[in-house]
């Protein structure tokens, strides 16, 4: 409880770190902020070609089917892979001055989140341009799904960033893990083609219900199934609390380990 109060007191720091990160990320590159969009778009093109033209599937509008899942996935995977090194990257601050250490993963995940929101502008543009249409009632639930994903990503980022301080290999291991994780989450395929006996296992992966919710809202234009949403929220909160506990334990020796 006192942690939350303290983090609230340091909200200006979170805000300024997010701003610095967003401004600094593409500094010096010619296309600058456009990379925020170019990167996922190219991934989208590659996956679309591979999974609908080369490996055939019968999902209509596959690019959209993929796009609405890929953007949230990129948010999550960059939160954990790059977020893992966030504390090590800020070691000058951590070693020199006190502030609630959670500020760092929080601001990192938040800046990834802002990036995702910007990409959603493109998603909506695609939806409108292709005439797919929007179900406004369903879209109203979108913020809830986003918050659930944010919570889960933050929990994971806290664990990853704290452990990386002690064990620098994790940063690289997470690159592999996130690739495997992506293919174990129904992003480039539908959960329906997965054998039913694995569905329980699939649902233990919090990203599965989260991605399904995004897809229901934006691709199927329906209000997401409440149990799926609740299940995702439950897992998200669990990982956030778990992450915060681990982070608090590990943060005590940050200054010495860095």
């Amino acid at each position: 409880m006192s942690t939350i109060k303290e983090l609230y007191a340091y909200r200006q720091m979170i805000f300024s770190l997010v701003k610095k990160d967003l401004r600094g990320r593409y500094k010096g590159s010619v296309l600058g902020f456009l990379w925020t969009f170019i990167n996922p778009l190219f991934q989208l093109i590659v996956y679309t070609i591979v999974f609908s033209k080369i490996l055939h599937n019968d999902i209509p509008q596959f690019y959209l089917y993929l796009f609405v899942a890929l953007i949230p996935w990129i948010f999550f995977s960059s939160s954990i892979t790059v977020g893992a090194s966030s504390i090590v990257a800020q070691k000058d601050l951590v070693k020199k001055i006190y502030f609630p250490r959670m500020v760092i993963p929080i601001s990192y995940v938040t800046s990834c989140f802002v990036n995702m929101l910007l990409c959603f502008i493109v998603i909506f543009a695609v939806i409108i341009v292709t005439g797919t249409g929007i179900n406004f009632l369903a879209v109203l639930t979108l913020p809830v799904i986003m918050i659930v994903e944010y919570i889960f990503s933050l929990g994971m980022a806290m664990i990853a960033s704290a452990v990386t301080v002690y064990f620098r290999d994790l940063e690289h291991i997470l690159g592999i893990v996130s690739m495997a994780w992506m293919y174990l989450t129904p992003i480039v395929y539908s959960k329906d083609i997965v054998p039913v006996k694995y569905h329980k296992l699939y649902n233990l992966n919090p990203m599965t219900p989260i991605i399904e919710c995004y897809r229901t809202v934006l691709y199927e234009k329906q209000v997401p199934d409440l149990t799926t949403l609740l299940w995702a929220a439950g897992l998200g909160v669990f990982f956030l609390v778990f992450g915060a506990v681990i982070f608090n334990k590990l943060q005590k020796h940050f200054a010495e380990e860095l």
């Binding site: 340091y10 610095k20 000058d92 601050l93 020199k96 001055i97 502030f99």
Partner: peptide, 28 residues
């Protein structure tokens, strides 16, 4: 203890005041 923690060389003095003071837990 460590003065100027988080100072960013490319930002102006004014912007750095905001960043630095935020590190001390001050609100805008």
């Amino acid at each position: 203890i460590e003065l100027g923690a988080g100072f960013h060389p490319d930002m102006s003095g004014r912007e750095n005041i905001y960043t630095n003071a935020a590190i001390f837990g001050l609100t805008k």
